[in-house]
Computed example of a mutant assay.
Amino acid sequence: MAAMDPDVLEMPADSGVGLMPYFTHIGRWARTEIDGLSDEQLDFDDQAPSNEWMWWSIRRQVSHIAWVSLIFSKRRCGALLWPDGDIPEPIKWSEHHQGRNHKHGLRLDPALFWEIPDLLDKLDLGLSWIRRVVAENSIETFRAMSESRHSTHFWDDAITVLPRGAWHDPDDDRVIVNNLECAIWMLFYEMSSHIRTIHRLKEIQGLPTVVDLARFGYLRLPHYWGETDTPAPSVDKL
């Protein structure tokens, strides 16, 4: 599959463009790469401390992408998607959240969502919510919706590929502020980085990859592309 122009996959440097990412790519890329894989190939991993990037199997990568699509939709876009508070419950929200004490390890409950069709079903749902947010709201709305959080090593790394939308609080350098425009692009970059990890897990098993990924977003950084064995910066607070 021919590589796409990375310029259409990047948050535009010109703030007047107002371009938002095209999340249909994620579902298509995921399906294309896992099509026809056996359970053994889907579940291949390596838990050696020196191989952190291999700790999550292809199946777990897909589960995480589905998880984050749902969690992000509810946490960052819930007020836009369900202004009356009628939030659907395709998963048990109390068991799926961000933070240190996430019950299922940043993935969907493996006891309920293990088979690939079930994982893709939840991924499709999450992506449909995000596409709806992007289609139904203006860029001005996204830029007006900001949140603050304690900065991490990850944030200090990620901010280097973002032309705008994330900044350190001028009163406290340990606090990062980001708006929803930036957060949606970061979500697209994160999902794409997991597609790249699926590539790497296939390559190490001697399996061909299909999607010719361009280097954009986080994939421009060496630890996300796989040019170094050094793991990506941690989410530990600064």
Rank of each mutant, 00 (worst) to 15 (best):
V210H: 04
M145I: 13
P163V: 06
L127R: 00
L213Y: 06
R28N: 12
M20D: 08
W67M: 03
H96M: 03
P49K: 04
W225P: 07
R215H: 11
A144D: 12
G36W: 00
Y224C: 02
S94P: 00
W93D: 08
A135L: 02
W185T: 06
T160D: 06
T141Q: 10
D157L: 01
T209Y: 00
D124C: 03
H25D: 14
H153W: 13
D171S: 08
P88T: 05
D157W: 14
W155F: 07
R107S: 07
L112Y: 08
E89T: 15
T230P: 00
I198G: 10
M145R: 12
D86V: 12
A13R: 12
M4E: 15
L108Y: 10
D43S: 10
T209A: 00
W129F: 13
L180F: 11
D157F: 09
V210I: 09
Y224A: 06
L119C: 05
D14E: 13
W56G: 00
H168I: 03
V210F: 04
R76D: 13
A30E: 01
H25F: 08
L207Y: 06
W55Y: 06
K202D: 09
H64F: 02
W114F: 10
H168N: 07
R143G: 11
E147Q: 14
A166L: 06
L125P: 11
L42C: 08
S146F: 02
D121R: 05
P231W: 03
R196K: 15
E147Y: 14
W56D: 05
A13P: 01
W167N: 08
Y189L: 04
G217R: 01
L162A: 04
L221R: 15
T32G: 02
F23N: 09
L238F: 10
I91S: 04
E95H: 08
I204L: 02
L238C: 08
P163A: 11
I176M: 15
H153Q: 15
H153F: 14
F216S: 08
I87T: 14
L127P: 07
L81T: 10
T152L: 00
F23T: 10
R107L: 00
N179Y: 10
A158Y: 12
V17E: 12
S151K: 05
N137T: 13
E136S: 13
T152M: 07
A232G: 08
W185R: 04
R143M: 07
G36R: 06
G18C: 02
G16A: 13
E115H: 13
I130L: 13
R131W: 01
L19K: 13
K74V: 07
P49G: 09
A2F: 12
E227C: 02
S192L: 01
E40S: 09
R107K: 09
V133A: 05
V211E: 14
K237L: 03
R132Y: 07
Q98K: 01
H194C: 04
F113Y: 15
V175D: 07
L187N: 09
M4D: 15
A48R: 13
D156N: 15
V62A: 05
I130Y: 11
